[in-house]
Each structure stands twice: as C-alpha cells, then as structure tokens.
Write a protein that binds this DNA or RNA. Structure first.
Length: 106
DNA sequence: AACGTGACACAGC
DNA sequence: AGCTGTGCCACGT
C-alpha cells in the first residue's frame, strides 16, 4: 500500500518513538516542518494505526484523543499501560517525563 | 472530480 | 483568561 509523502514521514518518525515513551502531534508536525499540520499527523496516524505505534502519540495535553481510532476505545490506553505508562482518565500521567520530542532527542 | 470531514495547535480578539 | 477562527494534507463519499 502506497503512502503519501507526509504520511510516510509521520509514520517513520513515530516508529522511532522508544517503548514507554509518547510524543505529540505538534512535536512531530513541527519536526517535519509543518507546524500547522498537527492535524494531519493525527488523521494520517488514524489511517496508519496498523503501520505505526500510533498509541504513543497523544495530543498536547497528554490526552488520548485518538483512542477511538483503535479497535476499541480502551486499546490505546491498554497498550500504553502495557509499556509501563500510567494512564488516568484518558490522560498520560507524568506526561512531561515520558514525552519524547524528536527535535530534542533526535 | 469536487466537497466535506477529521487523533490538533496557535494566534487573535 | 477563555473562545473563535484559520491552516494543513489525506481520504471517503
């Protein structure tokens, strides 16, 4: 299956997110040089949820805004918790601590 | 082939 | 200090 350029970039970057860490749409979009396309990151990941660890991507507040893209709304949280993260009320606890910023770590 | 909708984020009022 | 509008690209109908 063919992926568009932007999608490919997003997926590849998301794949680099270490286990037990999360990232944000804004950080990814910014790293790709499309600060205003944060929206795209989410939309694209939703389509490529099976091609990338999309569960590691949350919104700027650490909120699991994309949980509905998975098989069940609880899958995302379950996956995160399975990686050692703490999720409460659809929010990643210690979000700042586990946040993985490509602009910094890369 | 065109229009609308969608995992968001930021600036302006 | 909170709300509204705008920007971006992909994908389904």
């Amino acid at each position: 299956m063919k992926k568009s350029r932007f999608a490919e970039q997003v997926i590849e970057l998301v794949k680099l997110v270490p286990r037990g860490r999360v990232s944000t749409y804004g950080a990814i979009a910014k790293y790709l040089g499309a600060n205003k396309s944060s929206r795209l990151v989410g939309t694209i990941l939703g389509k490529a949820v099976h091609d990338a660890p999309a569960h590691r991507i949350v919104n700027r507040n650490g909120l699991l805004s994309g949980k509905h893209a998975f098989e069940t709304p609880t899958t995302m949280q379950a996956l995160l918790e399975a990686e050692g993260l703490t999720v409460k009320e659809d929010c990643v606890q210690n979000f700042q601590q586990v946040l993985w910023d490509p602009g910094i770590e890369l």
